[in-house]
Design a protein around this nucleic acid. Structure first.
Lengths: 368, 368
DNA sequence: GGTTAGCACTCTTCATTTGAGAGTGCCAAC
DNA sequence: GTTGGCACTCTCAAATGAAGAGTGCTAACC
């Protein structure tokens, strides 16, 4: 917890310095600050205060006799104690809402599509990099399995999990099985496992399916040997969506090739973002991570404003990444609003592993 | 077709200039060329020849009294007439083969996973941006449909197309239907449509399904009103994979922010690459597109070496993108080899719309 | 005629210089 | 506690100049 013993004046100056630096990306000096905000004080006084703030570790100078820029700690104090969230304009709200809400669209998109579209809107609205993590099945309850013959020795297993999540997996047998036995086998599995949590199934399928009386033994064996994957806890753990690399790459902060490469590498590699966003999924509300507060070295020159969202029984994360010099006060509102609306929308949506666009979305049709 | 009337000497010099420039990314001068390649001729002679090549439009000077760099046309002549493909070292071959070939892996990955892994290997091997387009169903033959009840009013339609391709789509009804009628409806559809090309079905489902005697009329109506999507020609037209942005962003060619932004924008937007790669899918063999030969303005400072690959009845594209200054002679071999192996591997794989990693891949299991 | 040496000229690059501008720290005075 | 004044520092941009690389051209050479 940062020093709270700041005078009112110090708080004010820190705020102004942060604001000015966010706008200009250039060190801000005492004289410039006075002129810019029509301060009643003289530059000299400001200088004294700035000096105190520097001693407190909230500001720093790139070199002697340059202006000051906020340190990570400075931003932290600003974010925690000084700024107040900016209300969104109706236009901004609409920009987000229109993308997310699907009224009049004629079909329900699946979660992946929604995330994709949302992340685009968010990235373009903030002019930063928007990132999101797909919802994970929380405590998934297994509903049922269907086995569909696919021609040749291949079988498509379709699992229905919790309310509305489905998972498909193609299994390959080395012998042909007629669809009758497939159906019987599926039925047997459903009788014994339906309603159980996925975890429980993973741990005890073999015992539960012992002494099978019906169904095809080969198929059953196939299912059992793949139970780790079939009944895995999370559906799409690995899926992140992002949008806006051109926005941030154009910022002066990323003129340095090394930073650029390290960020893009992290994005492509995905691991880094999985860790960061996955961690935030645990948090209760909106999170702000500033610069070196980040665990991941690749992006310690960046800040992230992120918020968890919920989708049925799963939950994910959506957020915005940019240089530490970012408009926290506005981004907080935008990200918070987005996550909120997203939770609303996703509450009504089925989660499928299908990744393609509207074409393979979920069509909502009036059957007249 | 570029001028063929080049003397042997001119061809030689052009080759050397291209090679030197590919290595150094700096304009190459006559004296430097002589020193570098231990030429028997004097710089003055080289100068004369270079002058001729400049007149022919194959070389250009960034400014008077700098060295020369190849023009797009210069590269074209080099590629078409002068270079010879470099054979791959066993190590390089192995690097590609190991990723693609799945022996000993224990499971068959789906097409998306294979593309993902291949593109990674290709990008890292070439130190450029590797891109690929997922295979498209060629002349798809509809095999059958299965309708799976999903809880609530939702139905999962599973289509089996051609040999081994499947497509899933979630449909939503506004009434509950028991699985018996679902099964009957599916059976009816299969009886009437199985074996027909997707195109034919799209055009004439309604007539073909007229006077339905069995099945649930509501479900049938739902299927009909979604036939455009269900029987759409291509499964995953929209999917491109890429890897290697950090590689190319680090190149001097991309120090210019504008180029960087325009390339990254095109990558995120996907449209540009869909057009480029989709077009190449039509071509017979490996294609080299140099600089402004590109139709798409966003990447007219880049070259692409790409090759189509085949997967069952579908076909896709895989290739490498980089600055026009790239090692064509080597890339040709690498891309060609990759596409070849990929076609081999994909011939044995089922294509599913499932995007996640190994977890939801296709498990190959000995049922014994 | 092709090839080459020589030479004047051009242009970039880099280091250096210089002046202006912005900013600081400190001191003394208010 | 606040401020004006002042010496000092540092960056930035423009200007300068020398070095280096390269060119084109001409005249001579084989």
């Amino acid at each position: 917890m940062p020093n709270k013993n700041l005078t009112e004046r110090e708080k004010g100056i820190l705020s102004l310095v942060v604001k000015a630096y966010i706008d200009d990306a250039a060190p801000v000096g005492s004289r410039a600050l006075v002129r810019r905000f029509d301060l009643e004080l003289s530059p000299a006084t400001i200088r004294n205060t700035m000096n105190d703030l520097e001693d407190a570790g909230l500001l720093e100078q790139p070199h002697t006799s340059a202006g000051r820029i906020p340190t990570d700690l400075g931003y932290r104090v600003y974010v925690d104690e000084l700024m107040s969230p900016v209300e969104l304009s109706p236009g901004e709200q609409a920009a987000i809402r229109d993308v997310l809400v699907d009224e009049g669209r004629g079909y329900i998109r699946d979660a992946a599509t929604i995330l994709d579209q949302t992340v685009r809107a968010l990235g373009d609205l903030t002019h930063l990099l928007a990132v999101s993590l797909e919802p994970r099945l929380g405590k998934g309850i297994f509903e049922k399995i269907e086995l569909v013959e696919m021609g040749g020795p291949k079988i498509l297993a379709v699992l229905t999990i919790a309310k509305g999540f489905i998972r498909t997996l193609v299994l390959e047998l080395d012998a042909l099985v007629d669809s009758e036995s497939l159906h019987e086998t599926a039925q047997l599995i459903n009788e014994r496992l339906s309603g159980l949590p996925m975890r429980a199934i993973r741990e005890s399928v073999r015992e539960r399916m012992r002494d099978a009386t019906a169904g095809d033994p080969k198929v059953l064996k196939l299912i059992l040997s793949n139970s780790e994957d079939l009944f895995a806890p999370s559906a799409e753990e690995g899926s992140i969506h992002y949008w806006g690399t051109p926005h941030i790459l154009a910022l002066p902060e990323f003129a340095d090739t090394e930073r650029m490469v390290s960020l893009m590498g992290a994005l492509e590699e995905k691991d880094v973002f999985l860790r960061i966003l996955g961690q935030k999924r645990g948090e209760k509300g909106l999170t702000i991570t500033i610069g070196e507060e980040n665990q991941e070295g690749e992006i310690q020159f960046c800040s992230i404003v992120a918020s968890p969202y919920t989708a049925r029984e799963g939950s994910g994360t959506i957020g915005v990444l940019g240089p530490t010099r970012m408009e926290y006060s506005k981004l907080v509102s935008i990200v918070d609003y987005t996550a909120r609306i997203m939770s609303e929308v996703l509450a009504r949506v089925v989660h499928t592993p299908d990744q393609s666009k509207a074409r393979t979305g979920i069509k909502k049709v009036r059957s007249e």
